[in-house]
Design a protein around this nucleic acid. Structure first.
Lengths: 367, 367
DNA sequence: CTGTTAGCGCTTTCAA
DNA sequence: TTGAAAGCGCTAACAG
């Protein structure tokens, strides 16, 4: 039963339209649902009746019948984060154009919340879902497999997962980071700080230890770290654990870490920050120490924004194609929903390094 | 009929669980839906069967029966805009905690898209909706009334609408703007530019003309403009149309307008920008002209961010309580959904002026 | 407590 | 072409 909704005020159903028009339910349904054959004459009467009653199809009931909801699920860590907001904007625009709406859920980077979110999306019978998963290895992906088992296509966004049969859209984190750090090295820097590493707490001593730690955390962060190491290797620069941030991934954590680095006997002459908050944290630390860029330390950051370009001097940044990522992920998902059968593929978009004025040669050290 | 979904792969239904458990459909439904009485023994068997089959309730079917979807609709201009992203984050968090998911739709500030969005949400039988409407007067609100007529509570967010029976959550735009401009005036400024007025194209000559124009555009912008005029009035400073931006509301528009103002014979000594992009556009214009703040021109902007505080010098900004706005709007909506009957009210949250270092006394003019 | 049965609003088969 | 009737998966009266 329809609970205790006002029988009088409740929206008109297709049956009511049918009797108002003096035709059978099926004919009303056919014209209102745009399928099957209806004579122009009946059609007209049904339309008039619908108009008169203010009829609106109940999409839920329709979905129960057809098994199609025209709704997509989107699971991200934090919709308030400009990066994800940009992605969601891309998803939203392209899915809406294709006639799909999106249920967006923020998981606060918690795997448990993510499981709940995916569960709810399955229950609500979304036609597909896009997820930026907090999972790091295969054992954490049962919920995604669950969705797939229910016949719901999944595409992974921003983060890959090993050995998992889903289309995936990411950027070339490792290569972007490598290019950025390489730019710094080419400018003459040998000591470059890395802000936003695996949040293990204490600084890490060996490179092996660091890589092990990285593999237990977010894929993107790990990749950027690998890119950093790649650049160091290419240039034959030895790894120094004291130049890698391992504090909590917050702006404050970044500020503290950078402060510590900058107070080292042999401080970094350049810093690469891998996140928006890592950059603002870095700037805050420098400010407090009375240091300027690029004179005292050269800077490159991730996630370009209008602000980065109006800083004085403007910051050299890596720009992620957020809208494109969202659009491509949606595109792939819609393809699967339409029944495309190709093997799952990983699409890697290129992030662009926007050279501005926060990089220069290191000052000759006065010892 | 369930279209051509694989009968074999299709998710198990409550009937299948029932027969697997060897009980009646109703008992299975009761335990799986957590209602009515079921003996522990049957309950156990049902649960086991459900587990075994990997049963998940079909929320759509449930909604058709109960008339409740546990889904909220959110309609904003642009989910990619950090302001709306913050609001949506607030909505998402508090609604999820109450067991509701959210369908988010971006309308690109188009009334037509908004109408479509509201229509879809009605069709999908959301239990309520929160909308930051692009409507400016009563005639544009038929779609909202439509939702209400369908028994769907609506709460307005960020923008009020006159003579409309909806709960509304906004900030005190006018008063915040007044305070900001007053701060500038108290510092000694008599010529303060206003960036982001009604986009009428050409500069406006009279104050009356300006106000008329403002009333045809976005409510928030109009209010901020009124606050600006209030502050001028309080200080007895005459209105000067050449100090009000009327170009397109983009960063480029702001840059051009500010450039024009700054090249005036008698340029502004302070600028109040009412949007994030208005501020970055302003900074860009100043940079191009070789002007610095606060020496050459004092600055106050709307929508604080991490970046504003790491600028050198840090910018004085007005901070909108985005999360709170979203949370409060959701709270009001959930109240209505629960059946609260109080008269619709407008809740005005306070925006905070964060004084930093972009305001100083005007330089004595060397004529 | 449990099962039978009707019903939610829509789609879709099937015979007329 | 059209209408009757069955079906989607679930809830909820109702009898027992």
């Amino acid at each position: 039963m329809a609970a205790e909704r006002d029988r009088g005020t409740s929206p008109p159903t297709i049956s009511e339209v049918a009797s108002e028009a003096g035709v059978g339910r099926a004919s009303a349904a056919r014209t209102l649902g745009n399928y099957g054959y209806v004579s122009p004459e009946l059609r007209e009467r049904v339309l008039a009746a619908a108009e008169k009653l203010g009829y609106r199809a109940n999409a839920l009931a329709r979905s129960v019948s057809t098994g199609v909801s025209h709704t997509l699920g989107v699971v991200v860590a934090d919709i308030g984060n400009p990066f994800f907001a940009g992605i969601v904007r891309g998803i939203s625009d392209t899915s809406r154009a294709a006639g799909f709406d999106t249920i967006v859920i923020s998981t606060h980077e918690s795997l448990d919340e993510e499981r709940g979110a995916v569960g709810v999306l399955i229950d609500k019978r979304v036609d597909g879902m896009i997820v930026a998963s907090a999972a790091v290895d295969l054992e954490d992906t049962a919920h995604l497999k669950d969705a797939a088992d229910h016949g719901i296509p999944v595409v992974l966004l921003d983060r890959t997962l090993p050995h998992v049969p889903f289309d995936t859209v990411v950027i070339d984190n490792r290569e972007s980071a490598r290019k950025a750090v390489d730019l710094l090295i080419q400018a003459g820097h040998h000591r470059v700080g890395f802000v936003w590493g695996p949040p293990v707490g204490a600084p890490v001593a060996t490179r092996r230890e660091l890589q092990a730690a990285a593999s237990r955390y977010l894929w993107t962060d790990g990749e950027r770290l690998r890119g950093y190491l790649d650049a160091l290797d290419d240039a034959g620069i030895p790894f120094d654990g004291s130049l890698v941030m391992t504090a909590a991934k917050t702006e404050e954590g970044a500020t503290e870490s950078v402060t510590r680095m900058l107070e080292l006997e042999n401080p970094p002459t350049a810093i690469f920050s891998t996140e928006n908050d890592a950059m603002t944290g870095t700037l805050r630390a420098m400010r407090a120490l009375g240091l300027s860029y690029p004179e005292d330390v050269s800077l490159i950051g991730f996630d370009d924004s209008s602000w980065a370009s109006v800083m004085d001097p403007p910051l050299t940044m890596i720009e992620q194609p957020m809208l494109q990522m969202g659009a491509l992920a949606t595109d792939r998902l819609l393809g699967r929903i339409r029944g495309e059968r190709a093997d799952p593929a990983t699409h890697t978009l290129e992030a662009r390094l926007i050279a501005r004025s926060s990089v220069t040669s290191p000052r000759v050290r006065v010892t």
